[in-house]
Amino acid sequence: MTATKIMPLNPAPDPGPDTREPGTIAPRPVLQVSGVDKIYGNGTVALKGADLTVKQGEFVSLLGPSGCGKSTLLRIMAGLGQVTTGNVRWWEQDYGVVGSRGRKLAFVFQNATLMPWARVRKNVRLPLDLEHAGKSEDVEQKIDDALGMVGLKGFDNSFPRELSGGMQMRASIARAMVTEPNLLLMDEPFGALDEMTRNKLNDDVLKLWKEKGWTIVFVTHSVYEAVYLSSRVVVMAARPGRIVDDIAIEEPYPRSPNFRVSTEFAGYCRQVSQALERASAMGEDRDEERQP
């Protein structure tokens, strides 16, 4: 196995990032997951026939009971796991394209996953260091911006353990943002936080998503969070993990906290909850089938 180096020059002409006005032409797909099965070494069928296309500028939530394969699917989307069958395309190309200009990918884990031995600033600059970005003024500016956007200005020299859980998560998001990713994959990033912090971070992420023109795939097990954030909620069922529903949330952005208390919100939540219940029931049916 040879490590693929990111080439500064693309042999094929690079169509570049999609800068077309949203709504004028159908947006390009950023991620295409087709017919993906994932069977782990111990025989667990984590995904069965997963098909999902995520288009430029979408905010897609993956929602489902725990153990239904959300993390597995997200890791495959990040190129972190081998698929057993099927294939995944990034910007309509192979994984090799990921990392080049306009096709950057970042991952936010459920835990902040910071390096405990490094100060916040060093943690945030890690992706740039790994890309050998050096220490230019431009790079320092990017780090300052990322820290500013998540509200961690002035915490450069703190160690992760000196921060609250919410602040650690912010540092983790700053680290993902610092490379200016085009596709952001988030695995239950706020699952461990209290509701106030969670709502605040939800609004922050929505704002950044709009400002930066990101495409986001967001894993959650909270119906409310999924409805509040997403333009699309993809519902999954367990055993085997599969996609069972795909619900568009047509509320326009920017969404304010008022949306949380609106009747539309309640309606969407009911719709998604019912889909989730059906999904869970499917899992249970299978359990019953297995019994003699």
């Binding site: 890791r75 990040a78 190129g79 972190l80 990392g99 884990f109 835990n111 890690l126």
Partner: peptide, 25 residues
């Protein structure tokens, strides 16, 4: 931390970088 390791792999880090920045600390 396996997640940190995943992250390093995502940036296609060399073994040397992985050793110096992650394994040794």
């Amino acid at each position: 931390d396996p997640n940190l390791l995943s992250m390093f792999r995502m940036y296609r880090t060399s073994r040397w970088q992985e050793l110096m920045r992650l394994r040794i600390p």
